[in-house]
Computed example of a mutant assay.
Amino acid sequence: MAAASGIGSHPGEDERAYAEALRVVVGELSDGHVPYLPEVPGRGPHATMTGRATAVWAELGADLQPVGWRLTGGGTGVDQRRARSLLGQDLDRLEEATQGYAGRLKVQVCGPWTLAATVERPRGDRVLGDHGARRDLAAALAEGIGAHVADLRRRVPAAEVVVQVDEPALPAVLAAQVPTASGFSRHRRVDPPEASAALELVLGAITAAGAEPWVHSCAADVPVDLLVGAGARGVLVDLDVLAPTAYDRLARTLEDGGTVGLGVVPGVGSGAPQPGQLIERVLRFTEMLGLDPEEVGSGLLLTPACGLAGRPGEEAAGVLRACREAAADLP
């Protein structure tokens, strides 16, 4: 049977919104689907995708500047400590809400290339512009993820942990489309072998920690071959924008027993879709790939295309419910 999940983010700006997001996720997805640790980035920079990553990675210091997160030459800064404290509080709530839970449980972390394209070096401009800094960042992320998975497994002992590595900027990194700090130029492209090596380091750390590595990217030109070659056991995409060139590789991923997450609901919009509409989309997709839904159904995951932070709270719950009901009714 297909399953349903979410990408990570939920709407809101305070701790009550986080409590509601967790209630919705656990309530909608605990029975045979893939619940996850919600993110509510509206709570501030410590709760964003990048802020969460600074809370996870090991040894590298970071602080907040007007331009965003920046590496420091010293130890952990006050902003990084706040990010770690917030993540710890969120994990405490997840542990309480999932007492006795057994099954897949997902956490999300920003990937090494999106971080390299986002985080500043101590003297300015992106980590992406420094070969040594981006290697150090990938290594720190890999080390920190191992400890993060171990902590989650301690908190929810019967969980089958999945780590979703978010790489929305990876296609831009590969295509030399990331602007420099001045905005007048672009960083040089990263060659696929180097991109793969950093991903292998991070995805390998996830596997070594006893978790299953997935990668999510909602760009059009998702490099599925590169992701699977680097060790991803699941690939999550936005079905509305995905280039047809990726279809064959996604089909092989399903045939090989991997997971393909189909983003079948826009992250922003008006109202939740009907489950029947989502079923039709999935069936059209599998037919186009020449796959039998009954044979690959257990590898299919229905999700929103991206996070749900851009939707009102009641719509976010409705989107997850529609994905769950559609997954349960697929052939």
Results as ranks from 00 to 15, higher is better:
residue 196 S to H: 14
residue 182 S to E: 14
residue 218 C to S: 13
residue 204 G to M: 06
residue 264 V to Y: 01
residue 217 S to V: 05
residue 180 T to S: 06
residue 246 A to F: 10
residue 222 V to K: 00
residue 195 A to H: 11
residue 160 E to T: 12
residue 280 E to Q: 08
residue 279 I to E: 11
residue 264 V to W: 03
residue 272 A to G: 09
residue 263 G to P: 06
residue 206 I to L: 02
residue 221 D to N: 09
residue 180 T to M: 07
residue 248 D to S: 12
residue 173 V to E: 06
residue 165 V to E: 01
residue 179 P to T: 08
residue 257 G to N: 07
residue 162 V to M: 09
residue 179 P to Q: 01
residue 209 A to Y: 01
residue 178 V to M: 04
residue 188 R to L: 10
residue 194 E to G: 13
residue 211 A to Q: 03
residue 189 R to N: 10
residue 253 T to C: 13
residue 255 E to V: 14
residue 213 P to H: 04
residue 209 A to P: 03
residue 265 V to I: 08
residue 189 R to K: 11
residue 248 D to F: 07
residue 273 P to Y: 08
residue 256 D to A: 12
residue 280 E to C: 06
residue 263 G to S: 04
residue 193 P to L: 11
residue 254 L to K: 15
residue 198 A to Y: 04
residue 194 E to H: 12
residue 176 A to S: 05
residue 194 E to D: 15
residue 231 G to D: 01
residue 269 G to V: 00
residue 200 E to H: 15
residue 253 T to N: 09
residue 174 L to I: 03
residue 226 L to R: 06
residue 194 E to W: 13
residue 190 V to K: 12
residue 254 L to I: 13
residue 246 A to L: 10
residue 233 R to F: 00
residue 264 V to L: 03
residue 202 V to K: 04
residue 161 V to M: 04
residue 176 A to C: 00
residue 233 R to H: 00
residue 277 Q to C: 03
residue 258 G to K: 04
residue 193 P to G: 14
residue 217 S to H: 11
residue 273 P to Q: 09
residue 210 G to C: 08
residue 185 S to H: 11
residue 228 V to E: 13
residue 252 R to Y: 10
residue 162 V to I: 14
residue 207 T to I: 05
residue 163 V to T: 03
residue 202 V to A: 00
residue 167 E to L: 01
residue 163 V to D: 05
residue 241 V to P: 08
residue 270 S to C: 09
residue 250 L to F: 07
residue 221 D to M: 08
residue 179 P to H: 04
residue 195 A to L: 10
residue 266 P to I: 00
residue 271 G to I: 07
residue 275 P to H: 00
residue 161 V to Q: 02
residue 245 T to N: 15
